[in-house]
């Protein structure tokens, strides 16, 4: 236990990095997901194809492979960015594919008549998506998106493998000094669990608040 308490500043530093990565990459993933789903349910065949290929590619590759590829591959082609920034961007692009799929299932759950009524009133495709279809689709996928948020939080720990000192890497470093893996990693695990529990609480509240009578 003292192994944990003696190194609270290191843990705290790691936790702050994890929280920053989670917030930034989730925000990025939300934007990516919205853009991809708009392309995928839209009327332009080329954009639909691009979005489909994007989702299929990113969902079918392990995040760790993408992280390693970006961290070691991008400098090769002259793109240099900080480790943490690179990891945030990769996680955002990766999780964006999952958010796009969750949103798409939400769009499919909305009756076709909603979009038809919007277009019959003269709204463009983009306007009907923004004002009519997506607001309703989002309400039906609050829970799956909460799950993606939790998975994303856990996935930030993979950044430890490419040298970002977030919570898992911090715990690992402390363990190298103290050699007490059980209290150290249980402590780190509890911190992740606390983040996930907050997410679950928020999605539950949101779901009730946004419920629409049908």
């Amino acid at each position: 236990m003292s192994a944990l308490l003696d190194h609270l500043p290191e843990f705290w530093q790691g936790l702050v990095v994890t929280l920053q990565m989670t917030a930034a990459s989730f925000a990025g993933a939300a934007v990516v997901g919205l853009v991809i789903v708009a392309m995928r349910v839209g009327p332009v065949p080329v954009l639909r194809a691009v979005a489909t290929v994007y989702v299929e590619t990113l969902q079918n590759l392990p995040l760790l492979v993408l992280l390693v590829l970006a961290v070691f591959g991008l400098p090769e082609i002259g793109l240099k960015a900080g480790l943490t920034t690179t990891a945030i961007v990769v996680i955002a692009l990766y999780e964006g594919a999952y958010i796009a799929e969750a949103l798409r299932s939400g769009v499919n759950a909305i009756s076709a008549g909603q979009g038809e009524a919007a277009r019959a009133l003269g709204l463009t495709f983009g306007q009907s998506l923004r004002h009519v279809v997506l607001p309703q689709a989002l309400r039906t996928v609050v829970q799956p998106i909460g799950n993606i948020f939790i998975a994303l939080t856990m996935n930030t720990s993979l950044a430890a493998a490419v040298g970002v000192v977030e919570l898992t890497a911090a715990a690992n470093r402390v363990n190298l000094l103290e050699a007490q893996p059980i209290p150290i990693f249980v402590g780190a695990g509890l911190a992740y669990a606390a983040i996930a529990a907050c997410a679950g609480f928020v999605t539950g509240r949101l779901e009730r608040r946004l419920a629409v009578a049908r």
Partner: peptide, 8 residues
């Protein structure tokens, strides 16, 4: 429309 299609 037959099914009204009001925005829910």
């Amino acid at each position: 429309f037959q099914n009204f299609n009001l925005f829910q």
